[in-house]
């Protein structure tokens, strides 16, 4: 009996549970994402852009959705588009929305390009993958095409990017000015006395 058991294995746990726990495992798997394509133009390196994705859960059960950025090959990208340099420039809020059956939810997506002139005048494409968490054998993932074009300038946040050496030089000029003023005043007093 033991040999017989060990000579057999289960293919997929979900298949077994599907067969044993849910006598009718044939469930549809359906959701909708919009917009299917987003085009951000003239995003200056150093600035941020924000938009919303709408996810509609067409299933009859609640799903928790997750997001992932994906870098398609050149043949799958729009013409003239290069690979988006860094996934970390894109963030989602909320990161794992839970959507009840037959309901919709919006997710804010923020794209932030670092303030570096090497990211100016670029045309990139990245895909944002949306998928419901599940333990079924088949899973659906929908990709949103995100096209990002950067402008020619670089936006430097004055508070965040004011060089330390500039602040130091300004302080030195101020201190020297006061010092010069005080020294001259002392000299004036001495000459008067």
């Amino acid at each position: 009996m033991l040999e017989k058991r060990s000579s057999l294995i289960c293919l997929v746990a979900v298949l077994i549970t599907g067969a044993v726990l849910w006598p009718s495992p044939a469930q549809a798997h359906s959701f909708t994402v919009s917009p299917a394509e987003i085009n951000i133009d003239n995003l200056t390196p150093g600035q941020e852009a924000e938009f919303e994705l709408t996810i509609r859960n067409d299933d009859d059960i609640t799903h928790r959705f997750t997001f992932a950025a994906y870098h398609p090959e050149q043949k799958d990208r729009r013409e003239g588009r290069a690979e988006f340099p860094d996934d970390d420039w894109i963030s989602f809020s909320p990161q794992r929305p839970e959507i009840p059956p037959n309901s919709s939810s919006t997710v804010k997506v923020q794209v932030a390009i670092p303030p570096d002139s090497k990211w100016a005048n670029k045309d990139w494409e990245i895909w944002l993958g949306v998928t419901p968490e599940s333990s079924n054998l088949l899973a659906v993932k929908l990709y949103v095409r995100l096209l990002v074009s950067t402008g020619g300038n670089v936006y430097a946040n004055p508070r965040a990017n004011l060089p330390i050496w500039a602040i130091v030089i300004a302080l030195v000029i101020l201190v020297l000015s006061f010092y010069y003023f005080r020294v001259r005043k002392r000299q004036e007093k001495r000459s008067q006395s």
């Binding site: 979900v14 469930q27 299917a36 987003i38």
Partner: peptide, 26 residues
């Protein structure tokens, strides 16, 4: 720069994509 830069976000209308599968377990 802050006052002159205009970011354009185009949502390409109301395009939405969806596929469904049935069944999803074997």
């Amino acid at each position: 720069l802050d006052s002159s830069g205009t970011i354009t976000i185009t949502m390409t209308g109301s395009k939405e994509i969806s596929i469904s599968l049935e069944p999803i377990n074997w």
